[in-house]
Simulated scan of single mutants.
Amino acid sequence: MEACFPCFGPRKKKVPPPPAEATSGDPPHRHDVAAAARTFSFEELAAATRSFGEDRLVAGKEPCMYQGHLKSVNQVVAMKQQHLVDHPESTEQRSSEFLARVLMLNALRHPNLVNLIGFCADGSHRILVHEYMPLGSLEDHLHADPSADKARLDWSTRMNIAAGVARGLEYLHDKGVAYRCLTSSDILLQDGDGYHYPKLSQYGLAKVRQFIEDPGEARAFARTTFGTLAPDTMITGKVSMAADVYSFGVVLLEMITGRMAFNHSAAGAEEDRCLLGWARPLLQDRAEFRRMADPALQGRYPSMDLEETLAVASMCIQQDPAMRSPISAVVTALARLAYDQAQEPHGHLS
């Protein structure tokens, strides 16, 4: 650990506990998983969303996502329409794929994952029902219009979010699951006792070593994740744990700098629009670290913590997958950086 992050020393800081309702532990047996996921009728879900009206659509990158209050569980939930089984010859295959997806998602239970509540396989409808996260995504809070009704995240909140995301990834990797590409829009926030608890959306999950085989899908995926997608995944199409670490490093830099991974609307050279193109030269010069801090923080962060967090990010975004830090080391490092703002005053860079 010290070899990867030599500047880290022991810390004693309070880290917010996980949400009380979340559970962890080994996933249940396949037979038990199927019984654990609740089943909902299409009629019940339609009633909760006013027949999936536009006013119930959830803003974000996921299409066909709705929110509504389900009386049977007395809870506001998010509902993701998967597809319609509209051709008799495809019914068996699509039903099998959907069931496999339900089984995988329901077997994953961790405080930093959005939990699957149930599903609908009623007639031709295939719908996943998840926890609803009313605070939106990390992307919303980092890159919202300054005039929008979104509170800016302070340094300690960003570090606690980063630590929680890393713990969620570590759990997934232990279960042989990875993201196709983790982005700040995949990190959803839950409020509790004044903290912002991060939870990873389950919609980007895939089995480790899975390939993005369809050429059209691969091109669209690379286009929508440009700036965050690991170069090895871009070349091979293969999902991997090392690629997750790379994407996490980009998201961590977003939290540090307040910059988008790739700003499509920005003018100028690609280096000015791409976060990594801008950040890599600065990471080579300690004297430039101050320039990398998000101006919205107004200097309210410990200078040593900034340096250490940049060291973590730098070890994650190595071009060579073999050189990237394992997620377990990232978890250990960020656990030392996460703290309750009330426990320690913020310093300023000199």
Rank of each mutant, 00 (worst) to 15 (best):
M1A: 13
E2G: 12
E2I: 12
C4D: 12
F5L: 04
F5D: 03
C7L: 15
F8D: 02
G9R: 06
K13F: 14
P16Q: 11
P16N: 10
A20Q: 13
A22E: 07
T23W: 14
S24W: 14
H31E: 14
D32Q: 14
R38K: 09
T49M: 01
T49R: 01
R50M: 14
R56A: 08
R56G: 06
L57M: 15
Y66E: 02
V73K: 06
V73P: 03
Q75R: 13
V76W: 06
M79W: 04
K80C: 11
K80S: 08
Q82I: 09
Q82S: 11
V85K: 11
P88Q: 03
R94Y: 11
R94P: 07
L99Q: 11
V102N: 05
M104P: 08
L108I: 03
R109G: 04
P111S: 02
G123R: 03
S124K: 13
H130S: 09
E131L: 06
P134H: 03
G136Y: 04
E139I: 11
D140H: 06
A151G: 12
R152V: 15
R152M: 15
L153S: 06
W155N: 00
N160G: 08
I161T: 02
I161R: 00
G164A: 10
V165D: 01
V165A: 02
L172D: 00
G176Y: 10
V177N: 00
Y179G: 02
L182G: 00
D186A: 04
L188D: 01
Q190R: 12
D191E: 12
D191A: 12
G192Q: 14
G194S: 10
P198N: 03
L200E: 01
L200G: 00
S201E: 04
A206H: 07
V208I: 11
V208D: 05
R209W: 15
Q210E: 13
G216E: 06
G216P: 03
E217A: 04
A218R: 10
A222N: 07
R223W: 05
T225N: 02
T225Y: 01
G227R: 00
A230W: 00
K238E: 11
V245I: 04
S247P: 01
V250I: 06
E254K: 09
M255R: 03
M255G: 04
G258P: 03
A261E: 01
F262W: 08
S265W: 08
G268W: 09
L275H: 01
L276R: 03
G277Y: 02
R280N: 08
R280Q: 09
Q284W: 13
E288D: 14
P295S: 06
L297E: 03
L297Q: 04
R300G: 05
Y301W: 06
L306S: 01
L310P: 01
A311Q: 10
M315D: 14
Q318V: 09
Q318F: 10
D320M: 09
D320T: 11
P321I: 05
P321K: 04
A322F: 06
M323N: 14
S328F: 11
V331C: 07
Q341I: 12
A342Y: 14
A342S: 15
H346M: 13
L349C: 11
L349F: 11
S350H: 15
